[in-house]
Write a protein that binds this DNA or RNA. Structure first.
Lengths: 340, 340
DNA sequence: TCACGCGTCGTAAACGGTTACGAAATTGAT
DNA sequence: ATCAATTTCGTAACCGTTTACGACGCGTGA
């Protein structure tokens, strides 16, 4: 055997820290850290039996070399790919900009953590299928059959949303609703409309609740409540336009979604109302392609994706279900103004 | 993660023809065919240097054992996964229902053919990135920089759409436009509006051209042309509503997209017009979630996906670029009627 | 008959990881 | 200081495939 001899550097330069060609392999990292490949594997995979200091050295070497484990090799060795299946309420078809953006971030995080996306969102109204090792559920309602199905089958999954007793991650929708209300209160508004999508969706309910309770706490009358069941810009447009045409002149509207906010702005504009001069509009999500000057409650998509894969790992590991609520912030831009 | 314990039964039984447990490997096939694994690999991969009779025996053994090569092992050995990158014009964000449905079908076909989806749609306005071996371009406009970029870089790709000189697949949009026009002609309409999305998109242009030329051929006046640049239901709604409010009373409207057709129907309805009694509406695409009674021009999504992967294989193989045009059919449902 | 070439095929070494096993080093108790 | 118990780590064997290389058998030309 060849004990790690300092003499090797003299002979051949091929054991250098930087890989001769192509991507760094586990062996490059081992050489750089001065340990064996076994140790590197253990350190990187958070296995026990490796000294903290050694682990740190390995980590440093790995990041220095931009080490990125080869998925094929890992799968081959593990005799099975850990794959995650994405399941959306109505397949790809109801893919809202929100989920689209989330998916984009998610796939990046998934790739980094060695997980592999097996199926693109699918399943239609049906149950999640396929032999994925874990699932991510998107757009599930409280009575979504997929939840019970997965629970009963004992398959690991994480819900993007909130549901009692199931592992899930979601923004703090209620706090977001409160933020919106407080913002409006601060600006002196008093006649306000609250527009949500399907009211039995948990997120919608939470945002609405936060909004109305904060309004009440501020001593304001209850907002008039409008709903556009499909949550689309067009739905929002029609429902708000109808309300406006009936003579109502709210000073502000809180749309539970950026998408719906765009519909609101269009409706107001078509009726000759200026935003924010005549009516303030505030949205929710902070979608990049929409947030062009829109005051909104921002969700942290990066965190959402990050926590989703963290929970995924926990689910795969059989940990106790945990539910994480992400903080949310208000971004004040150009669509809200003081009531005059 | 809990690795499944591999078969650890009888020691001696491992050289049998039928795999002890789990999937058959190349060694099982070799044993069954009475040759070595090297020969099996060569035979199955159509490499030269294997006798025809031997090849046949190997093939038979392989099918008998339902041999399915392990992707991870193959990728590891080849040092490269054949991966395809999906690139969409604006990342996921402009993911229309059309592309969503297409992607759903595409991923199924891709999986069947051993290709692997490397990246979910990404890139924003940027160029396709990543080390994918081939790309699928979605939503590209004639002047899309991605096309030139990929062409210059000599990377294999297929365009979902039509562009002179590049390998691509698309529905026969022009024929679809003609079909729509002929349908309207047959029903006796004469005052017709044509509503498209971004007019410089190839598909929009083709549909419009087919429609107007067929109308002209039928001896009808040119349609009044409306455009909703974002192609959204709301955009369609507003533009058609404005037109209707200006006093126009077309007897029929051809929306270049099912999505836009929904906006048209809503606009007509909000103005007290019955569909199809007062105005006929005809769409394009035949999206399942929309085609609820909508007369439309149907695209064959299955064929679209199938041809895409076929072209992908050709691209990978370095074949001459080929462009396929898929036939299209008119589905007459409840939103068109005879002009009265 | 011998050498040579060619077409077939088997052997073994990769590919880049994981992990069982045991050796070495460290610790603690006596 | 000695020895056992316990960490920590290195070695090597796998996972299933591809492919370079060499061995072998068989015709052919001399």
């Amino acid at each position: 055997m060849a004990p790690r001899s300092p003499a090797q550097e003299g002979a051949a330069a091929r054991t250098e820290a930087s890989p001769a060609r192509g991507r760094a392999t586990i062996r490059d990292v081992a050489a750089a850290a001065g340990v064996s490949i076994g140790t590197v594997s253990r350190a990187l995979n958070a296995r026990s039996g490796v000294h903290a200091a050694t682990r740190q050295r390995v980590m440093d070497a790995a990041t220095a070399l931009a080490y990125d484990p080869d998925r094929a090799a890992r799968e081959l060795s593990n005799r099975r790919a850990v794959s995650v299946g994405l399941s959306m309420a109505h397949g790809y078809r109801r893919l809202t900009p929100f989920f689209a953006l989330f998916l984009e971030r998610l796939s990046a995080h998934l790739a980094m953590s060695g997980l592999r996306v097996d199926d693109l969102p699918t399943g239609g109204d049906g149950l999640p299928v396929g032999d994925a090792d874990a699932f991510v559920l998107l757009g599930a309602h409280p009575d979504d059959p997929r939840i019970g199905h997965l629970l009963a089958a004992g398959r690991p999954f994480v819900l993007v949303g909130r549901h009692p007793g199931v592992r899930g991650v979601a923004a703090d929708d209620e706090a977001g609703g409160r933020l919106a209300a407080e913002h409006l209160l601060r600006l002196g508004h008093h006649d306000v409309v609250l527009l949500t999508g399907q009211p039995h969706a948990q997120a919608m309910a939470d945002r609405a609740r936060g909004f109305t309770t904060a309004l009440a706490d501020g001593g304001m009358a209850a907002p008039t409540r409008l709903v556009a069941d499909d949550g689309s810009p067009l739905g929002a447009y029609r429902v708000l336009r109808a309300h406006l045409e009936s003579g109502a002149r709210p000073t502000a509207v809180f749309a539970a979604t950026d998408e719906m906010a765009t519909g609101c702005i269009a409706a107001a504009g078509d009726l000759g109302l200026q935003v924010p001069a005549d009516v303030s509009v505030i949205g929710f999500d902070d979608l990049p392609e929409i947030g062009d000057g829109l005051t909104t409650v921002r969700q942290d998509f990066e965190a959402l994706a990050r926590e989703t894969v963290a929970l995924l790992h926990e689910a795969l590991h059989g940990d106790e279900p945990r539910s994480v609520r992400l903080p949310v912030t208000l971004i004040s831009r150009g669509t809200t103004a003081e009531r005059r």
